[in-house]
Simulated assay, not measured.
Amino acid sequence: MDTITHTLFGLGIYGAINKEHLSKKEKRVLLFTTIGASQIPDIDVISQLWDTDGRYQMWHRGITHSIFLTPIWALLFYLISWLLFAFKSKTIFFTALIAVIIHNTSDVFNAWGTGYLEPFSTARLTFGTIPIIDFVIWFVFIMVFLLSRKKKEQRVKIYRVGWALIALHIFLQSAQGYMLYHKYDQSYEQVALSASFVPWNFSVIAKSGNQVSIIDETIFTEGRIKEVLTSSDDANLDQLFSKNPRAKTLYEWAPFVVVVEDDQTYGIYDPRFYRNGQSFLFEYMENGKIDR
């Protein structure tokens, strides 16, 4: 998910906690914990500073987003609370744990995916049933915030209802995505999903042979083929990987890729992010630089 959504998750966790018996200081520490722990897995962005081998695509949302690392992040916030704020409470640990789990798990639901099972598996776990920026989640939190200001005595209850609505939204989206995935899974060799910004609308990316179809779908309408892409699967990618290491990383990272080999370009791209004639995840080299 995007940074704004993760921040909203942190504020939502804070709002859903009963703070009636907490002091102002304890409330500040709790707020710091909920927002900080909701953001901490994305600390991996700093790995760009020392990436000399084109591995950032794998490092981002990699080990820092592992479900097995969540207790370590929670312990970090527990220690910060104790050492910097002189507030020692198991509540901080478990609140941070929940915040990190929500961050890591929510990222699994969009097309980018995460290294959720690292270091035991390098596979990117991705469902593709929730867009990276989900305006439904934004809308729910905005309404919860506005309503809780008017009915302060019911603030905790309102935030908890908001969380229930978000969980219902994710369930409905994912259930529909599951049905669409299995609708095409029997007819194509490989299938991936990418959720639209419009609720209940999906792009189904289906590959058979060297043909990749991008299909606009909902469970209520007949699928419409938006694009048919041809992949040069017979191309030898070794030279591309040698001259552009990011291409090799993308090849490992994506469920499947489209290979481009023409007079101008030699490269690969992830068709899940194909919009307006191109994918923003495209690694290539000029074809004239290939040794024939």
Rank of each mutant, 00 (worst) to 15 (best):
A254C: 04
L229Q: 07
G209N: 07
T52H: 15
A167Q: 03
F171W: 10
Q48R: 13
D263H: 05
L165W: 06
L172Q: 10
E26M: 06
R272S: 02
P41G: 06
Q239H: 04
K151S: 14
P119S: 15
L76G: 01
G288A: 12
E222D: 12
Y78T: 06
I35E: 03
E20K: 15
S81C: 11
V191P: 06
K24G: 11
V204H: 09
T218A: 07
A86Q: 15
N110M: 08
I13Y: 01
G12V: 03
Q48C: 07
G15R: 05
P131E: 14
T122N: 15
T230L: 09
K226I: 13
T265P: 10
Y56T: 11
S203K: 15
I225T: 13
T52F: 12
N210T: 14
Q211K: 15
V45G: 11
W112L: 13
R61S: 12
N287I: 00
I290N: 02
I80Y: 05
I13N: 01
K248Y: 05
N110V: 06
V100H: 07
K150E: 09
F85L: 15
F9T: 02
F32R: 03
S23L: 02
S148Q: 02
V144G: 05
W163D: 00
V45T: 15
T126N: 15
L83F: 13
Q211Y: 11
S242T: 07
Q176M: 13
K243R: 14
R275C: 00
R224T: 08
Y116H: 11
E217T: 06
A164W: 03
T122L: 13
S38W: 00
Y159M: 01
T34M: 04
T129K: 07
G36I: 08
L31M: 14
V258G: 10
A16H: 01
E189I: 13
H6Q: 10
I35Q: 03
Q173P: 04
T5V: 02
E20M: 07
Q39D: 05
E283G: 01
E286K: 15
V258A: 11
Q190C: 06
S279V: 10
L83W: 13
I98P: 02
H60S: 05
I67M: 09
